[in-house]
Amino acid sequence: MDPLVLTQIIPEVLDPFTPTIPLRITYNNRLLLPGIELKPSAVLSRPRIDVGGNDMRVFYTLVLVDPDAPSPSHPSLREYLHWMVTDIPETTSINFGRELILYENPEPRSGIHRMVFVLFRQLGRGTVFAPHTRHNFNCRSFACQYHLNTVATTFFNCQREAGSGGRRFAPQGP
């Protein structure tokens, strides 16, 4: 089963989509695999992110959101926006984009938080703008507002340094 569906990122954060562009994310030379657990100390600095493809005339927006803020049982700040980079040319790294919302490292206070990276294809350079606030960001509304298409996503789980255990999911019906 798709990890995005299993962890309910689809449908809570995104609608179903077909990935079309490779997205490679590494924190401290450690490849981010879907659902890996990373403690706050491992994500202090922004990761290295490379976007695949072969046409530098195509541009992307990357966001990092926490749909479980401030806690998974009461996500009143859902989706908290930790980072936004726009105008990333295909075939390059995010270093070639424009950082509109500075990277804020995840520091969950309670529970296990799903930290979701979403890569959107833009209509063109300079067509996406930063929201006024980080809390209550909404990937679907954002994509609709700027006519963006979801092309790649991945996520990691993060909890406070002393935390342990796993996210529990109710069994799905037939």
Rank of each mutant, 00 (worst) to 15 (best):
H82Q: 06
Q122R: 03
R109S: 05
R114Y: 03
L102T: 15
T133D: 13
T133H: 07
P108S: 14
I112C: 12
I88W: 09
E99N: 14
V85H: 13
L81A: 02
L123C: 09
T86V: 13
P131R: 04
G97F: 08
L119K: 02
Q122S: 06
C139G: 04
H82E: 02
G126M: 00
F120G: 11
Q122V: 03
R98C: 07
E104S: 13
H135S: 13
V116I: 02
H113L: 05
F96N: 08
V128N: 04
G97L: 08
V85T: 08
R78W: 01
E107A: 11
F137H: 03
E79T: 02
I101P: 03
Q122F: 05
L102G: 13
P131T: 03
H132M: 11
V128Q: 01
E79Q: 07
E104Q: 15
Y80C: 05
M115E: 05
I88H: 12
G126Y: 02
H132A: 15
L119T: 02
R109G: 07
H135T: 11
F129I: 02
A130F: 02
R114P: 06
T92P: 13
P89K: 05
F117C: 03
R134E: 08
L119C: 10
E99K: 14
A130W: 01
F96C: 10
R134N: 08
W83R: 04
L81R: 11
F96P: 04
G111R: 12
R134L: 09
R109N: 12
L119G: 04
I94T: 12
V128I: 11
P89T: 00
T86H: 00
E99S: 12
L119F: 06
N95E: 15
E107H: 13
G126I: 00
I101Q: 08
T127D: 12
P89H: 06
N136M: 09
I88R: 08
H132S: 15
A130H: 03
P108Q: 13
N138L: 06
S93N: 12
F137W: 02
T133E: 14
V116L: 01
R114A: 09
N136Y: 08
E107Q: 13
E79H: 02
H113I: 01
T91L: 14
Q122P: 06
S93Y: 13
V85Q: 05
H82A: 00
T127I: 05
T86M: 01
H135E: 14
G111P: 14
R109Q: 11
L119Y: 04
R134G: 09
H135P: 10
L100Y: 10
